[in-house]
């Protein structure tokens, strides 16, 4: 874990320091924010190279907006999650409309899954199942259950009401359960 010289400084204050030319603030923001942006994009897209592109683009937008950041309006993380969510949406829609064949298929029947460690298999299965959810449900489920955010913040990120977030996550969980139920044995969940 790289050393965070500003461990006690808020994200917003770091952004101001960055805008004032502080190099350590840039490093701290990178350490704090890039893994979040990358993690969210990775869950949404399921592709490491694409997730890295999205994370870099989202961070680039953060660097650009830093001098004009309006303090007190939104948390930096909320802003970043929203940018990543929008970039992922754009990426998913573009790849759908341009070339359906280039979209990685959900890997339902990977021959080597059974031989992998069960934990890795479970993560792969979850990722595959997430990929089958409609995009908005996937966004909501990833933010709520994997990133661990609260519904009000997710509502702000996705620019919808809290009730809509609850509805999306509930439907997403039901769909995931249905998808994963068929793969219980692969996942290490076996009947008595």
């Amino acid at each position: 874990m790289p050393f965070d010289a500003y461990a006690d400084v808020s994200d917003e204050a770091l952004l101001v320091l960055y805008a004032n030319g502080d190099g350590d603030a840039a490093r701290s923001l990178n350490v704090r924010m890039t893994p979040r942006a990358f993690g969210q994009a990775m869950r949404m897209l399921g592709d490491r190279a694409e997730a890295e592109d999205i994370a870099q683009e989202a961070m680039l937008r953060l660097w650009k907006i830093a001098p004009d950041w309006r303090q007190g309006e939104a948390k930096v993380t909320t802003w970043l999650y929203r940018v990543v969510a929008n970039l992922c949406t754009d990426r998913l829609r573009r790849s759908r409309s341009v070339d359906l064949d280039s979209v990685p298929e959900p890997e339902d029947d990977r021959p080597d899954v059974a031989g992998e460690m069960q934990q890795a298999a479970r993560m792969t299965a979850l990722q595959d199942a997430l990929a089958q959810l409609p995009e908005r449900q996937r966004q909501a489920v990833v933010l709520r259950h994997i990133e661990g955010l609260g519904n009000p913040e997710i509502a702000e990120i996705l620019e919808i009401s809290t009730e809509a977030v609850e509805s999306l996550t509930a439907r997403g969980k039901r769909a995931l359960t249905a998808i994963l139920a068929g793969r219980r044995e692969e996942l290490g969940y076996t009947d008595d």
Partner: peptide
Amino acid sequence: VMADAIAMQ
């Protein structure tokens, strides 16, 4: 990302 940060700072 760090290179971008320095370039944009």
